[in-house]
């Protein structure tokens, strides 16, 4: 499989009065064509800002991508002018968001919101765009698509709105779809349907997906590979099966330990003590040192590198050097 997106040493920092917050601090990963990559981590780990950096939509003022490369289909997106980015966003890279209830414009009809993308990027006429919109709505599961077209978002449920968002995102046949917590705000029953739909569509349109989530169930459902983020860095990169069978990084282990399992009888779920440190207060050494049960002297002062431990599996931890892990 060829590589679609390559993110190298991405650094997106937020600047406030005499403070620099390294929210994304040297992130590397790649996405292959047709593959679904999950980015997992707690709130504040930098996963959403990583995705917004790819889109060039880092919140302003304050946020800025200061270093790195985002090579998408052969071009470095960070080198593109804003004018050139307008042609990439929504066209080649599309995004869906966490809050379907508020992500659609309340004063424009569903039809207007889908067709405007087609008219803008694909230079379709109003009529063609309308036809295509009906088609798309049918694909995402609206039986009476024509009627939905003239409805306003407030008439639809959360699950339906997320379907509309997906239809909108897929309208220009993007090569990459970034889904930022697409199911977090939905009912559990609807979550499964939306995940199923995304899986179907990515196969149908042959697009890659970056799935951002903190829900490991969603990861298991949809992803091929996973990167685990912590404190603005990638701490582990691995295949989906390997993550669940044998997580390498202590943080990944902690995350998996906090998921209930059906075949185990436990009184309490284990949890990782403490919180993600805030970006202005990252530890000097390993970012996870404050919460790690294996923390060593070395971890306090030196930052471990992200190293390939097994073929295709990387981890950022000194334990692997010591042979302490397995």
């Amino acid at each position: 499989m060829s590589t679609l997106l390559q993110v190298k040493n991405l650094k997106t920092h937020f600047f406030s009065k005499n403070k620099v917050l390294p929210v994304v601090d040297g992130v590397d990963f790649e996405v292959k064509k047709g593959e679904t990559l999950a980015i997992v981590g707690e709130s504040g780990s930098g996963k959403s800002i990583t995705s917004l950096s790819i889109m060039g939509l880092v919140p302003k003022p304050g946020g800025k991508t200061v270093d790195g490369e985002i090579i998408f289909d052969g071009t470095d997106l960070l080198q593109l002018s804003e004018n050139e980015m307008f042609k990439v966003r929504g066209n080649e890279i599309a995004m869906i968001f966490q809050e379907p209830m508020t992500s659609l414009n309340p004063v424009l009809t569903i039809g207007e919101q889908i067709t405007e993308v087609l008219i803008y990027h694909k230079k379709m006429s109003k009529k063609e765009a309308r036809q295509k919109a009906v088609e798309l709505l049918k694909i995402v599961g609206f039986a009476r698509a024509e009627e939905i077209l003239d409805d306003y978002p407030h008439r639809l449920s959360g699950g339906m709105r997320q379907r509309v968002m997906i239809a909108m995102a897929m309208s220009c046949d993007p090569k990459l779809l970034i889904a930022d917590e697409p199911t977090t705000a939905l009912d559990v029953t609807v979550q499964a349907q939306i995940l199923e739909l995304m899986k179907e569509l990515s196969e149908k349109f042959d697009s890659s997906i970056i799935l951002i989530t903190h829900d490991l169930g969603v990861v298991a459902e949809l992803a091929d590979r996973v990167i685990v983020m912590y404190g603005g860095q990638v701490v582990e990169e691995t295949g989906i099966v390997e993550l669940f069978d044998n997580p390498l990084h202590p943080y990944s282990k902690g995350l998996l330990g906090s998921v209930p399992k059906l075949d185990e009888e436990k009184e309490r779920l284990s949890s990782i003590g403490g919180n993600v440190p805030s970006p202005d207060n990252f530890p000097k050494g390993c970012r996870f040192v404050t919460r790690c049960e294996h923390a060593m002297e070395k971890c306090l002062t030196e930052q471990p590198e992200l190293k390939e431990i097994y073929p295709g599996r990387k981890s950022r931890c000194f334990l692997h050097d010591e042979g302490g892990n397995e």
């Binding site: 889109m55 939509l57 980015m85 307008f86 042609k87 990439v88 966003r89 929504g90 066209n91 599309a94 995004m95 968001f97 809050e99 508020t102 992500s103 659609l104 414009n105 309340p106 004063v107 424009l108 405007e116 993308v117 803008y120 990027h121 968002m165 909108m168």
Partner: peptide, 23 residues
């Protein structure tokens, strides 16, 4: 959020503000 959606669609800032925001 819908302003962010409009930006993610690749619209120029003027479209985002005047078409999606102002109304």
């Amino acid at each position: 959020d819908y302003i962010r959606t409009a930006r993610a669609k690749g619209f120029r800032e003027s479209t985002v503000i005047y078409k999606h925001g102002l109304r």
